[in-house]
Amino acid sequence: MLTKRIKRLSPYVPGEQPQDRSYIKLNTNENPYPPTPLIEPFLKSFDIERLRLYPDPLFGTLRKAISKRYNIDISQVFVGNGSDEVLAFAFYAFFDSVRGNLIFPEFSYSFYPVYCDFYGIEYRKIPLTENFTIDINDYLVEESSCGVVFPNPNAPTGILLPLEKVTALMEHYPADRVVIIDEAYVDFGGESAISLIERFKNLLIIRTFSKSMSLAALRLGFAMGDEGLINALFAVKDSFNSYPADLIAQRIGEIAINDTAYYQAITQKIINNREFLSKALKDLGWHVLPSKANFIFAGKKGLKGEAIYKGLKEEGILVRHFNTEGIQNFVRITIGTDEEIKTLIASIQRLF
C-alpha cells in the first residue's frame, strides 16, 4: 500500500521526551524561562466565540509587528507553523537538483537532509574546519549548486559565522541561487544578517519563536527576505495549507515580538549561564566549543559521548548525544537555570 517515496524516507529524530521520571531537561534547546507574562491576561480574556472563524491566512497583524521589530517592510515577512515548516516550504520553493546539489555543513541541523530526501533534492555536506567552523571558501568552489543553507550560529556546534563572513559569501555566491540562513539561535550572542536582505535579493533569513521567546509549544516561525522570495513561500503555503498559524498563536506571537525588554533580560541570563558553564567545564579539563547559542557542545578526552549521556541520564539529567562519526565524543547541553546548571556541574564533577 505504501509508495516508493515513503519507503525511502529517513525521518528526523527529535530529542527524547521520556515520561518515566522527572528530569532536568537539557537536551532539546528549550528556554528554561517562561514566555512574557503579557500573554496570560490575553488568554484569560480571550473570547472563545472567535474560534468559530478561520484565522487570517496572511498573518497581517503579526507580520506587521515583525516588520516593525526588525525595521523592514511587511512584504518582506512570511509566517508559518514553526521554523521547520518555513524551512520545508523554502526547500520546496527554492532548491532542486537541476542546477546542482544543495550544500550545507557536514555537522548541522539534521532536518536538512530529511527535507532533501522528502523532495528529491540532491545534496552535498561540506566538511567543517578542524576547529568545527564554517569556511565560506568551501561553498564558493562548488562547481554547481542549487543553493546554500546553514544555521548561524551553527547547530550542534554553537559556533557563529561572523557577519562579515556572511557578507563575503553573499557577495561571491551566484545571485540567482538562494542562500538560507537559519537564525534560530542568533539572539543568544550572534549578529543577524537581516541588514543584508535589501542588498541581496537571494538571501532568506528564517527565525523561530521557540528559542529566545520561550514559545516552543506554540509552533510559530517566520522568514524575512526579498518580496519575491516571500511571495514564493506564500504560493507554497497556499498549495498545502492556507491556515498554518492559528488565531491564538498569531496573537501570542504579536505580544511576544513586542516585549523586547523582557526577552532581552532572560536572554542575558542564558548567556551568563552559558559562560559560567563553559568556564566550569574548561576548568575540569573539558573541551568546550565557543558557543553563541543557548547550548554548548562539549566533550572530555578519554570519555565517549554516549557514556557522558548515559551517566547523566542516570542522574536525572538529559543532554543530547549524536552517534555520528566526527562528533560522537561530544554532547550538546542546553543552558538551563542557575540551579539546573549548578546541579549539572556537581553531577559532572562526581561522575567524570
Rank of each mutant, 00 (worst) to 15 (best):
F240G: 01
N241H: 10
N241G: 06
S242A: 15
P244C: 07
P244H: 04
A245T: 14
D246Y: 05
I248N: 07
I248A: 09
G253E: 00
E254Q: 14
I255E: 06
A256S: 15
I257D: 05
N258H: 14
N258P: 00
D259H: 09
A261Y: 11
A261V: 15
Y263G: 03
Y263Q: 03
Q264S: 13
A265D: 15
T267G: 05
Q268F: 13
K269L: 14
E275R: 11
F276T: 09
F276M: 15
F276K: 11
F276C: 07
L277G: 04
L277D: 01
S278E: 03
K279C: 10
K279Q: 14
K279R: 15
K282M: 14
D283T: 04
D283I: 05
L284R: 14
L284F: 15
W286D: 00
S291T: 07
S291K: 01
K292Q: 10
N294C: 01
N294M: 06
F295A: 06
A298T: 15
G299D: 06
G299K: 02
K300I: 10
G302H: 08
L303R: 12
L303T: 08
L303E: 09
K304M: 07
G305V: 08
G305I: 01
E306I: 15
I308V: 14
Y309C: 10
K310V: 06
G311C: 07
G311I: 06
L312Q: 00
K313W: 02
E314L: 10
G316R: 05
G316A: 06
G316I: 12
G316D: 05
I317V: 15
L318T: 00
R320S: 12
R320Y: 02
H321R: 06
H321W: 13
H321M: 05
F322G: 04
N323P: 06
N323D: 13
N323E: 13
T324M: 09
T324R: 08
E325C: 07
G326A: 08
G326V: 04
F330D: 02
F330A: 04
V331P: 02
R332Q: 13
I333G: 00
I333C: 06
I335W: 03
I335P: 00
G336W: 02
T337G: 11
T337K: 12
D338K: 13
D338H: 12
E339C: 11
E340H: 07
E340T: 11
I341Y: 02
I341G: 03
